[in-house]
Write a protein that binds this DNA or RNA. Structure first.
Lengths: 351, 351
DNA sequence: CGCACCGATGTTAACGCTAACAGTCTGCAG
DNA sequence: CTGCAGACTGTTAGCGTTAACATCGGTGCG
């Protein structure tokens, strides 16, 4: 017993409770709690004494006890479906970080497809989840969103904006970003610019395409239909699209791919065809994933603040859930974060 | 009040407590607890009744209360330093998953360098962390490990094995993996095989190199010093190494890079030099990160079960911490997980 | 037939913290 | 002086769960 206590005292910070600190500082536990939580109504001298005691004893508050007492802990689900790993890791970092801050437990679920997404959502609801975060393409699934609405589960989408009452969202202005990128290409002097689309079921695809078209229209350039080719955000689909574009007799001088994976595929295809980038062909992407800086030349792209987006997502979700708990109606909130145009080495004036 | 209660009853699963279930099932809370926790000593009929009640009321246990009562919650830190994002996301997924299971709170900290790592470790210790998980290159820093030993903080390394009392580890057999890869190249008929090293301060580098050398030695082949070149695991360092190797008059027919990033760089360099892969040059990597399947051709590599590794890491760490809490001495535990040789499209017999 | 014992369930008392309320002690207006 | 606001601190009572012990019918056996 003595031995155990010794070990405990030696290393087991976990056993230092608020009561120990209170005793050491000669105050009540409540006062310690106030100090720890930054309550202003504590005399400076008292506060110092308490802080001193905390320091000496190496006290750190017990999260579980606090959650229990304040009834604050939330449980939210994060659903993702086959994103690029850099998107995923950035998102996870943001989520983890924010979750710790606002005492939220996150359940991360990978969904192979829409079907799987529906199943997961149902499971989570049954398990009593407080809210759900959806990333594309699940965020674009009306089916999933309807299910969430019907079960009155709070929900927020990342990367896609849905103008619907029951869903909040965090995203960037895809339209403006695509437009800025296209303007950049135009400024460089390109006139024959191709676009590789993303999956048709994702809103981002349409928005980016619209931005692309708008920029060209503003410059008085007609977009040849043949220069807008299908893609599905995957590297493989990018290879196919690039081959199609590069085998044209009058091939484009610039290719704007709807994401970095497809841009990277375009670069690879160009290399295989002995086409120099950026000398003979300009390629640019979207997302600023790791891939963009990994291949050679590095890809000019649009940076999305993914980590911030997921942090914001948790915040918004928390707000909705607390509103609901307090008996208020959660309000819809669409946050648009700033993107950043990142110029690298894959663009140049046309040959 | 009534309104609030109604809302509560309507949606607030959180408010259904074990007592409600107990009441509904006509038993005591303790019995419900036993059912929920799978205690065998409950009569089948009772169990059914309780499960029925749980179902009806949509009860789900309150994590915080459970943690508090069982004093089980652990807090561990995960330190990483500039890994590839696929490594990171795989690791995070494993950690998140396992952490939820064993009621552990994870603090993820990025460390820019060794200096930063030391600082973070100190902070975490001061904050009362129970244990720490280190990934390379921090896992190879004697300085950091010494600090942890001195503060008696439990620690485990991922990806690198340290044969030291106070640190457990999860890793794969780098030596055997490199040897298997090299044997594969030898079987294909390669005799002039180059090796691109990783950072010299990481154990994995040496182990892989040793495996490489052993395979060649076993085949009775001398390794020309010029064919073993420096690298630092980064794409950029890979470019440099590859240029050196490919500009040789008698260039190697196969290049084994110490990780996928450098293998990808080698592929890119080869393409720039109009060298066909795998027709004229075989390239293989290590790690099986996303990059390996993203570029063309896809890289033959060694797959590390990173998600499983991080799950195991949490398990081991938990074991050490619980041992300590129970007054026992935590035992060192080095787990070696199975790697997998993954053949893709970047290797072929020599021309 | 009684006693030890076992399996199923209930009771009690924490776990560590904080909300809500209850003082206590100033200083200062009346 | 009295009293009363206001600044500070203490007390009480949970939050929802489980560990540890208590209880209570049986079962089997000497």
């Amino acid at each position: 017993m003595v031995t155990k206590r010794q070990i405990t005292a030696r290393k087991q910070h976990a056993r230092v409770t608020i009561a120990d600190v209170a005793h050491a500082a000669g105050v009540s536990p409540m006062t310690v709690s106030r100090v720890v939580n930054g309550d202003a109504r504590v005399r400076a001298t008292t506060r110092d004494a308490v802080n001193q005691a905390i320091e000496t004893l190496g006290y750190s508050p017990n999260k579980a006890a606090r959650s229990l007492a304040t009834a604050s802990q939330l449980q939210i689900g994060l659903l993702y479906d086959n994103p690029s790993s850099s998107f995923l890791s950035a998102m996870l970092l943001g989520v983890l970080d924010q979750a710790r801050r606002c005492d939220t437990q996150v359940v991360v679920v990978e969904c192979a497809d829409r079907e799987d997404g529906m199943r997961s959502v149902r499971n989570l609801i049954a398990a009593g989840i407080d809210g759900i975060i959806l990333s594309p393409p699940l965020a674009d699934s009306t089916e999933v969103l309807d299910l969430l609405r019907d079960s009155r589960t709070q929900c927020i989408t990342i990367g896609t904006r849905r103008d619907e009452e029951h869903v909040s969202s965090v995203s960037i202005d895809n339209y403006a970003a695509a437009r800025e990128m296209t303007d950049h290409l135009l400024t460089l002097g390109h006139r024959r610019i191709a676009f590789i689309k993303g999956s048709p079921d994702q809103l981002a695809t349409e928005e980016r395409l619209a931005g692309f078209r708008a920029a060209l229209a503003a410059a008085g350039i007609d977009v040849a239909d043949e220069l807008v080719v299908d893609g599905r955000f995957s590297y493989r689909s990018g290879l196919k699209a690039a081959e199609k574009l590069l085998s044209m007799t009058d091939r484009p001088t610039a290719i704007f791919a709807c994401n970095d994976d497809m841009a990277a595929a375009t670069v690879a295809t160009a290399h295989r065809n002995r086409i120099d980038i950026p000398g003979e062909l300009t390629v640019c992407g979207f997302d600023d994933t790791l891939l963009a800086t990994t291949i050679w030349p590095e890809i000019t792209t649009i940076h999305q603040p993914i980590t911030t987006m997921s942090q914001t997502a948790i915040d918004l979700l928390e707000k909705r859930i607390r509103a609901l708990r307090d008996g208020r109606d959660p309000e819809q909130d669409d946050v648009t974060l700033e993107f950043r145009f990142v110029r690298r080495g894959s663009d140049a004036p046309p040959p």
